[in-house]
Nucleic acid binder design. Structure first.
Lengths: 122, 122
DNA sequence: CTGGATCCTCATCGATACTG
DNA sequence: CAGTATCGATGAGGATCCAG
């Protein structure tokens, strides 16, 4: 009797781990930030340029949330002008492994989803 | 020169496949519904009981969205009283494979995330 | 350069009541 | 049994201005 089923089940009771994760990275920007930092360490304005259409306001909030959950780390250099670098933590890198599989699935099946949406609009 | 990097990148241009997926699945209930249907086909009220604290309103909306994207199928039986069964489609089952990996990651790392949150509140 | 503070808008979600 | 309609609350996200 293995506990495969149990491992695979969602715990409907509080706290729900996957809910914690989805609530944090399910927003509009978190995943884009993580994917940008997966390539390389970046500072605030570099991230802003990289992502493009995010406001500085939302970038700031997103970074703080990701840092609070341990996905990224923030390093301040006491220079003039100030420099702040954001780096993926081990936890963040670990998270991107299963997440990249899901991203790959999304890329592979995007056509099927679009097709399903079109079919119902006929 | 492989295209591994390209496969792994998020397309910042529209439409973004992973955004389509996260927008649909990132809400409060979709994943719970899919996980419930992963076990077995269920009818509306069975799902309602199974998930527990979802309102019929939200269950109805969630089911419709999932059906629209092809994750589940809806079968109506012309009986009295009416019977409607919801089943996972091939696409839905396919989606749960990478998703289950992510769920497993969330379970495994939930403690680390909680720890990160506590550390900052000190 | 790296943000915080404030105000605003809009989509989402819940509660309630109603229908075939 | 299986939903829909309507209304109100809530919070995510954007715009703008200000600060260290």
């Amino acid at each position: 009797m293995t506990n495969d089923l149990e491992d695979n089940m969602i715990d409907f009771e509080q706290p729900c781990p996957i809910r914690d994760v989805l609530d944090r990275i399910g927003d509009q920007w978190s995943l884009l930030v993580l994917k940008a930092l997966e390539i390389q360490t970046l500072r605030f304005n570099s991230l802003h340029r990289e992502i493009g259409d995010i406001s500085r306001q939302m970038l700031s909030r997103t970074l703080k949330k990701l840092e609070n959950d341990g996905y990224i780390s923030r390093t301040i250099y006491a220079e003039v002008p100030p420099r702040v670098e954001y780096t993926l933590t081990d936890l963040g890198g670990s998270f991107l492994k299963p997440m990249n599989i899901l991203i790959q699935w999304a890329n592979d099946n995007h056509e099927a989803i679009c097709l399903a949406r079109k079919n119902l609009s006929q």
